[in-house]
Computed example of a mutant assay.
Amino acid sequence: MPGTLSKASARTRDRAKSRLKRENALAHALLHPFRTVPLAFLATIIVGAGLLMLPISRTDAGSDVLMPALFTAVSAVCVTGLITVDTATFWTPSDRP
């Protein structure tokens, strides 16, 4: 009986080690400098597009806003200055709705 218990605990310990090794490999892969910069750009674009899609961020709440918000966020993060909608009339200033 004691041998069976130790085999089960060894299997559990091995599973925990392999799970930890996979988690460390994933964290290492995501934190590699060549992946960190694009992931930071992607995260900033997603957050910016999400903020621009909020009803308080635009003047016309009923309009389709996914593509203009995404394009504006990408353009702002990449500093291209391109726009698809007139910024002064489509988006509201942040201090007033």
Score class of each variant (00 low, 15 high):
residue 37 V to S: 07
residue 57 S to H: 01
residue 56 I to V: 15
residue 46 I to L: 14
residue 12 T to H: 03
residue 27 A to T: 08
residue 24 N to D: 08
residue 45 I to T: 10
residue 24 N to C: 02
residue 67 M to K: 04
residue 62 G to T: 11
residue 17 K to H: 02
residue 75 S to Y: 05
residue 53 M to I: 13
residue 64 D to F: 15
residue 60 D to V: 09
residue 11 R to D: 12
residue 74 V to S: 08
residue 17 K to R: 07
residue 70 L to W: 00
residue 9 S to H: 06
residue 62 G to N: 14
residue 71 F to G: 01
residue 57 S to Q: 09
residue 74 V to G: 02
residue 9 S to W: 04
residue 73 A to K: 05
residue 35 R to V: 13
residue 55 P to M: 09
residue 10 A to E: 06
residue 59 T to G: 04
residue 40 A to L: 15
residue 31 L to K: 12
residue 58 R to S: 04
residue 15 R to I: 05
residue 44 T to S: 14
residue 59 T to H: 12
residue 21 K to R: 07
residue 31 L to V: 01
residue 41 F to I: 08
residue 40 A to D: 12
residue 25 A to C: 03
residue 16 A to W: 04
residue 23 E to W: 03
residue 63 S to V: 13
residue 60 D to S: 11
residue 10 A to F: 05
residue 23 E to R: 04
residue 47 V to Y: 15
residue 35 R to T: 15
residue 33 P to S: 13
residue 28 H to N: 13
residue 22 R to V: 02
residue 50 G to I: 03
residue 35 R to K: 13
residue 16 A to T: 01
residue 27 A to E: 11
residue 27 A to I: 07
residue 50 G to K: 10
residue 43 A to H: 10
residue 26 L to P: 02
residue 61 A to V: 14
residue 21 K to P: 00
residue 58 R to Y: 05
residue 62 G to F: 04
residue 55 P to V: 10
residue 54 L to F: 09
residue 43 A to Q: 09
residue 49 A to R: 03
residue 55 P to C: 12
residue 39 L to H: 08
residue 59 T to K: 13
residue 33 P to R: 12
residue 25 A to Y: 00
residue 19 R to Q: 09
residue 10 A to L: 03
residue 21 K to M: 05
residue 47 V to T: 15
residue 10 A to T: 03
residue 15 R to N: 11
residue 43 A to F: 08
residue 65 V to M: 01
residue 48 G to E: 06
residue 24 N to M: 06
residue 35 R to Y: 10
residue 59 T to N: 13
residue 49 A to H: 06
residue 54 L to H: 09
residue 23 E to L: 06
residue 36 T to E: 08
residue 13 R to Q: 06
residue 15 R to P: 00
residue 42 L to M: 14
residue 66 L to H: 00
residue 36 T to H: 08
residue 67 M to D: 11
residue 63 S to I: 13
residue 31 L to D: 15
residue 18 S to T: 09
residue 17 K to P: 01
residue 31 L to F: 05
residue 34 F to Q: 13
residue 70 L to K: 02
residue 45 I to R: 00
residue 64 D to N: 15
residue 61 A to H: 09
residue 60 D to N: 15
residue 13 R to H: 06
residue 47 V to D: 13
